[in-house]
Design a protein around this nucleic acid. Structure first.
Lengths: 233, 233
DNA sequence: TGTACATCAGTGAACGCGCGTTCACTGATGTAC
DNA sequence: TGTACATCAGTGAACGCGCGTTCACTGATGTAC
């Protein structure tokens, strides 16, 4: 199916709106993202944007969904570039793809993982699935390593308190067969670790100078690899 | 030195401004914090607030400094309540004080550790020291445990890359004698881990239902304790 | 191939709103003698 | 104890600004016959 000139132009304009929006987020933050200033930047009047997005929140939702997708894609692509049985290399690739994407797209990273925009409520039916893709990239790797008997799950994850068992239980039905509850918890734990270091680096919560290089992140990734028993192959 | 009625009232009003500001942050976020709406809430006109703070940024700075101080104090108090040689108990106390304070004061926690307010630049001479107090609470404990030979520093922290050695080196001069570079890096790594889980819980980046209980945090703290060799005493 | 009609991107004016900050001022509180 | 003066909390008007969203509209693009 070919697109008419009009439809082509429409897609271009829609993409440009999102691009300008991303620039604006970088400059003034997602909370101050304004349709009027996007329109101004594009040489349009503000009402014109309503041809493309029902309102400001709809634009924000689109940006959030694309950001999650882009991050998950970057991580999955890094993973795919390694040999399937090189679990150590795959984890490192995923972890650094996570950090690199964050450093290259700080505004998008902040949009999805920073302070929620006040007054904006993310529509769950649109954002939950893309958000899950990020976690799944880590989760799939762990599952494969586990099935290949190349993953050591630290003791406390094996002895989950009942409350956690129950919460995770419901989730397991939506996941491939054979994934242990401890793996799900481990996945989130690892995400939190990677996220914490990246956020601290990004906004200077550590010692100045130390963060920018990513050296701290490198050490942290090495520690995680060691703890999971993902030996160098 | 006794305060006059006027001075007393001044302190009350200043405290009330900050209190109302904290409420507003909870409702609309720190980025949308507005002097006019604070004044409205207090039954004052907006210019009156300029008797207390030079401008909006000065108020924000005061809130940030107080938040760091309150968090650090809560953590230090929890630490102080345990026997000095119960390093495992002390770490748990500090870690849970961190989480509890965050859950009880989400707006303050978000103010200091969330997305920076666009356009606001924190004056380093006022915020760096209080921010450091939080990290120091963890750092002091590790130092004491290390000196008592009750701390196992995971291998990768002992073999820091040169870049990290250098960055941390400058910092060591401001710290008590005998603190190893690995301890500084370990401190930040632990902060990042605790922070990552708390933030994920606070804003729902994990599986719904799983986060609220704090069960995930509990497991994470247990894992850290085990890794550091802080055995139950 | 040409014409009549439908679609739809974008305009310009308007709505009602909120913001930080300044300024000259009033009137209460505090102080010095 | 009483009076003159200084201090300072708070007011009200004004400055210039930006925002999301609606509405009736123009004019270009696309389509059906």
């Amino acid at each position: 199916m070919t697109l008419t000139r009009r439809e082509l132009k429409r897609e271009e304009t829609e993409a440009e709106i999102k691009e300008v929006a991303r620039q604006q987020m970088a400059e003034v933050g997602a909370a101050a993202l304004s349709l009027r200033s996007i329109a101004r930047e594009m040489g349009l009047t503000a009402p014109a944007l309503y041809r493309y997005f029902a309102n400001r929140d709809a634009l924000v939702t689109a940006l959030i969904v694309e950001a999650y997708r882009a991050l998950a894609t970057a991580m999955a692509a890094a993973d795919a570039a390694r040999a399937r049985d090189d679990f150590n290399g795959r984890f490192q690739a995923i972890a650094f793809a996570f950090r690199n994407w964050a450093m290259q797209h700080p505004q998008d990273f902040t949009l999805i993982y920073g302070t929620p925009i006040p007054g904006y409520v993310a529509p769950r039916d649109q954002t939950v699935e893309p958000a899950g893709q990020v976690l799944q990239t880590i989760g799939f790797l762990l599952t494969e390593a586990w099935q290949a008997d190349k993953l050591t799950i630290p003791q406390p994850y094996e002895e989950l308190p009942p409350a956690l068992q129950t919460s995770v239980g419901g989730l397991l039905q939506d996941l491939p067969e054979g994934v242990p509850a401890s793996g799900v918890v481990l996945t989130m734990s690892i995400w939190a670790r990677l996220y914490g270091v990246v956020w601290g680096e990004l906004y200077g919560h550590f010692v100045p100078g130390l963060a920018e290089s990513g050296a701290l992140y490198q050490v942290e990734v090495a520690v995680i690899c060691a703890e999971l028993g993902l030996e160098d192959s």
